[in-house]
């Protein structure tokens, strides 16, 4: 970790007006990790924790607002979340560990960086860490890397579980920056790497995520977060699926589905959702949806297993959602 200056402003305005080479600090579970690995080298660390952005409150439209500084643990345990958005609670609980969730914030979760081995190792070339140096993951040990949304410049996954549920739920991200406020659909918040993989998302300099809004949306029990990983807990997703289906008389109304672990961002394909809507759940329908979701998938040296697994996980997740039997995050049997 290199030397840096530290400040803890108490107004959003002060926090937005920061010098170059600043990083915001929220829970620190990703930023401190990366600074110790010499991946992040901020000259200034601006601690957001004195700002009041940890509310979880109902919106007039019946939706919910999650403060950017609310912790992942508090969010997952909040009665309004567990009652109305159990899919989100489940996805949060599928990630990291209780200690990390106690510190990790919603805003930090959105802005966490990839777990690509090569990104984390400053001795290795990486376009995301050091633009223009090349991508060591290509042709390297890449069983954890993405198969969707990749580019020649980068094949890293975006590792969040929470954001997969947020994408499925069509959440909206609220930002405040030196030029004022704006809102972006979560599905557009993260970027594809293309030829600028160092830009993970659309956040501009000085901008701060203030909150995340969830639209009023209920799936009853017809939802699931199904996460496949290398051990049964405390590991990042190899493939994960967040699915919510509004079921009426055994017909799918609105369908929401997003994937984690396979894409360079939370992976959504509106055509796949459209394909499900108005139909009766069936294995072949789910297969079609899987095929649609995985269109354009490209594997590299070590990650073909993801492509083998992904359709099966999608089909299973959709079956769970249709049946109204969401995956438990403690009971490891997959129903």
């Amino acid at each position: 970790m290199r030397q840096f200056s530290y400040s803890r402003p108490d107004t959003l305005d002060t926090a937005c007006h920061t010098p170059d080479h600043t990083r915001y600090l929220a829970g620190g579970t990703n930023l401190i990790d990366l600074m110790k690995s010499d991946v992040e080298r901020p000259e200034h660390v601006v601690d957001l924790s004195a700002l009041s952005m940890s509310q979880i409150e109902e919106r007039p439209d019946g939706g919910l607002r999650l403060g950017a500084l609310a912790t992942n643990a508090d969010t997952a345990a909040h009665p309004l979340v567990t009652e109305r958005y159990p899919l989100l609670a489940s996805a949060i609980l599928a990630g990291a560990s209780p200690q990390i969730r106690n510190r990790a914030t919603n805003g930090g979760n959105l802005n966490q960086r990839t777990r690509c081995h090569y990104f984390y190792d400053p001795d290795m070339a990486c376009n995301k860490r050091s633009p223009g140096t090349g991508c060591s993951a290509k042709g390297g040990r890449n069983r954890i890397m993405a198969i969707l949304g990749t580019s020649d410049a980068c094949i890293a996954t975006f590792p969040s579980d929470m954001c997969v549920a947020l994408a499925a739920l069509n959440a909206t991200v609220h930002l405040t920056g030196p030029e004022g406020e704006r809102s972006v659909p979560l599905r557009d918040y993260h970027r594809l790497p293309e030829d600028t993989p160092w830009q993970d998302n659309i956040l501009r300099t000085g901008e701060i995520v203030t909150s995340i809004d969830l639209p009023p949306l209920s799936f009853g029990s017809h939802h699931t977060y199904l996460k496949i990983r290398d051990r049964l807990s405390f590991a990042f997703a190899i493939v994960s699926v967040a699915a919510g289906l509004q079921m009426e008389n055994n017909t799918i109304g609105k369908a929401c589905i997003a994937m984690g672990g396979v894409g360079t961002k939370p992976w959504c394909v509106p055509e796949a959702e459209a394909l499900l809507e108005g139909k009766t759940p069936s294995p072949s329908l789910f297969r079609d949806a899987a095929e649609c979701l995985l269109q354009g998938a490209v594997t590299d040296r070590d990650n073909a297993a993801k492509l083998k697994l992904a359709p099966r996980v999608i089909i299973r997740a959709l079956s769970q959602a249709a049946a109204g039997t969401p995956q438990s995050q403690t009971q490891k049997t997959i129903f």
Binding site: R115, H117, Y120, M124, S136, R141
Partner: peptide, 21 residues
């Protein structure tokens, strides 16, 4: 990664030892 001779998953998040679960 034989191209450089380094074990790349050199941490406890990616070298998985069994957890409680």
């Amino acid at each position: 990664d034989e191209r450089v001779g380094r074990f790349m998953n050199h941490n406890f998040a990616e070298y998985h030892i069994p957890a409680h679960a």
